[in-house]
Amino acid sequence: MTIIACTIDAIEPLTPTVNRVLLTPHTPINYQSGQYLQICLSDEDKRPFSIASHANSKQIELHIGASVADKYAGQALTHLQQLYAAKQPVLAEIGLGNAQLRVDSDRPLILLAGGTGFSYIYSIAQTLAKQQVNRPVFAYWGVRDQDALYHHPQMQQWANSNPLYTFVPVVQNPTTQWQGRTGLVHQAVLEDFASLADFDIYIAGPFAMAGVVRDAFVQHGAERENMFCDAFAYI
């Protein structure tokens, strides 16, 4: 874990409630795909966000969902916007968490995300592609509404890049135009696999979701030591 000043390169909307934030650390920093950082609003107030960029990227990408209901993320975004307008750097703790990609495993992977937890599996997916990892990878992204699938084209391109990669978007409240999977994202996983015993599973999303997924997947054969999610430390 390292505290470092970062230039704020851009803040741009991905959806009406999700913004992409691009940061460049002032000195080179090492982190692993699947780790997160904390934006330092003050010495005592630090807000965690998954890193969406792959581990060797010089620029750090964040996806911050700051809806009216999510004041915790919204306050961090406001802090970043104020610094960006003033052309001031932001302090961040980088390289946190224990749910990073395990590169020494040869087991197939399931990547599961709810909402902006997608940034976590996006980092892992990019790293797997760049390292040309030839293991079956099934990436599931669950959202409430179709418009929240802000990186659908990028993930479809990722899936098209390797026959071992599969991308499954799942919409909870679909419109009549939506032709894909519907319902809860973890239920889609349960429907697709008779057992989860052989998989490494990476999970990101709200704490409440993480607990439900953990229990359901263990009941479906998943090995607890092969399930990775930083939220598990708090629930």
Rank of each mutant, 00 (worst) to 15 (best):
Q88D: 07
N19R: 15
P136E: 05
I3K: 14
F118S: 00
D43A: 12
V21I: 11
H151E: 00
D198V: 08
Q154A: 10
L62V: 10
T17W: 00
Q179L: 05
A99L: 02
V90K: 05
A52V: 02
A5Q: 15
L96G: 03
K46H: 04
A159V: 13
F193G: 13
D192P: 07
Y140T: 07
L111Q: 02
F207M: 02
L109H: 06
F118C: 01
Y234L: 09
A73D: 05
A92R: 07
M1S: 10
P163V: 02
Y84W: 09
C229Q: 10
D145A: 07
P108H: 07
D200Y: 04
L80G: 00
T166G: 02
N162M: 10
C40I: 01
F138M: 00
E225R: 08
G183T: 13
R135S: 15
T27F: 11
R20S: 15
G205Q: 07
T175R: 01
W141T: 06
N98G: 08
T2C: 05
E12H: 05
V218C: 01
V185L: 04
I201V: 01
N19E: 13
D192Q: 10
L164E: 00
G97C: 07
Y120M: 03
L23V: 05
V185I: 12
I124M: 12
Y122E: 02
R20L: 13
K87Q: 14
A99M: 02
L80S: 01
A66R: 15
V133S: 06
W158H: 06
V90H: 08
Q82C: 09
P153G: 01
I3H: 10
V133Y: 03
Q88A: 11
E191Y: 06
D200F: 02
E93V: 13
E191C: 05
L196K: 12
A216I: 10
S50V: 10
M227H: 03
L23P: 08
V21L: 07
A159R: 11
V68Y: 02
A208W: 01
F167G: 09
N56I: 12
K46Q: 13
C229N: 12
R20V: 11
A216V: 13
A125F: 05
E12K: 10
D200L: 06
S33P: 05
A197H: 09
Q126R: 03
A73E: 02
A69E: 15
S33D: 00
A194V: 14
Y84D: 05
V90P: 10
P48I: 11
Y234T: 11
P206N: 08
K71F: 03
V170N: 09
A188L: 07
P108G: 08
A129Q: 11
H79Q: 02
G34V: 03
N30Y: 10
L37S: 08
L109T: 03
V218P: 00
V90C: 15
N56S: 15
C40G: 04
K58A: 13
I29F: 04
Q146K: 15
A139Q: 03
M155H: 10
G115T: 10
S57F: 03
H151T: 01
T78I: 14
A10M: 03
S50A: 14
I39S: 03
A210W: 07
Q126A: 00
N173L: 05
Y84R: 06
Y234E: 13
Y165K: 03
L101S: 04
D192M: 02
A208L: 11
S53W: 07
H79E: 04
N30E: 14
I3S: 15
G117D: 08
R224S: 14
I201M: 04
A208S: 12
T182H: 00
L101M: 09
G180Y: 01
D215L: 08
